[in-house]
Simulated scan of single mutants.
Amino acid sequence: MAIRVLVADDHPMWREAVEKDLIEAGFEVVGTASDGRAALERTRATRPDVLVLDLHLPLLSGAEVVRGLKDAQVETRVLILSASGAAQDVVEVMKEGAVGYLVKSTGREEFLQAVAATSRGEAVFTPEVAGLVLGEYGRLARHDSREPAPELTAREKDVLRFVATGMSYRDIAETLGISHRTVQNHVQNTLGKLQLNNRVQLARYAVAQGLAQDDSVPGAAAGPSSGPAPTRAPR
């Protein structure tokens, strides 16, 4: 079945272009919104798989929309698509529960891949914001009280280290020489053992346990690589 998406952006030309790209790629766009209040109301009404959400919207900000969805227990996953890569903006909305964060200079194909990944609960970030997110997780982890870590297999720990850098399942599979499905199975098993819900929480756990600092893990940034700017003019 097609992934169901709602698009919220206050710039009509950008919003319509994003909607067109999604439809052409086979996604089902269930609606659009031009302000934060409409984004919250329409997402609550339609329950899409993914909400593609601008950060700076009239009436309600992107962070307020994400908080409202969380309070209403709406399970739609939120992918931020914003012109801002400012640390305060990124950290605020990720704390509220957004799954991923892209800047508007991201290329079309990278964006479409990120929407699909978000629908699966995978954390996706453009490189310029990935370090901010992992850094914040590390800061929060130092103040968290944690119970002893459940026992993970050596391979689960290997996969977890790469998840902490934001690598895709496909890249992890290629790096470790295993199948994409095997990586998925390891992630699901690890989520179950740790009683976590998604890759965002898993990445935070890995940072908290010091796994993300392992020397065997490359320092590559997370999420889709920053490609050429889309033909649509960013805000």
Rank of each mutant, 00 (worst) to 15 (best):
S168E: 12
I178M: 13
S179G: 15
R161G: 04
V163H: 04
G177E: 07
R170S: 15
T153V: 05
V159G: 02
A173M: 06
H186M: 01
D158V: 10
N185W: 11
R155E: 06
T182M: 03
T165Y: 14
T182G: 09
M167R: 06
R170N: 13
L160P: 08
T175W: 04
P148M: 09
V187G: 03
A149Y: 08
T190G: 00
R170K: 11
R181K: 00
V183R: 00
A173S: 02
G177K: 05
S179E: 05
D171S: 15
E156Q: 06
L152N: 03
T175M: 07
D158T: 09
L160Q: 11
S179P: 12
R155Y: 05
I178W: 02
Q188F: 05
A149Q: 09
T153G: 02
D171N: 14
F162Y: 13
V159E: 05
V163K: 01
A164S: 12
R155P: 00
P148Q: 10
P150G: 11
L176N: 07
K157G: 07
G166C: 11
V183M: 01
D158G: 07
M167S: 14
Y169N: 12
V159N: 06
T175R: 03
T165V: 15
A149T: 07
I172P: 03
G192I: 02
S179W: 00
T153S: 04
R170Q: 14
R155H: 02
Q184L: 00
V183Y: 02
R170M: 15
V163Q: 04
I178Y: 03
E156R: 04
E156I: 05
E174Q: 11
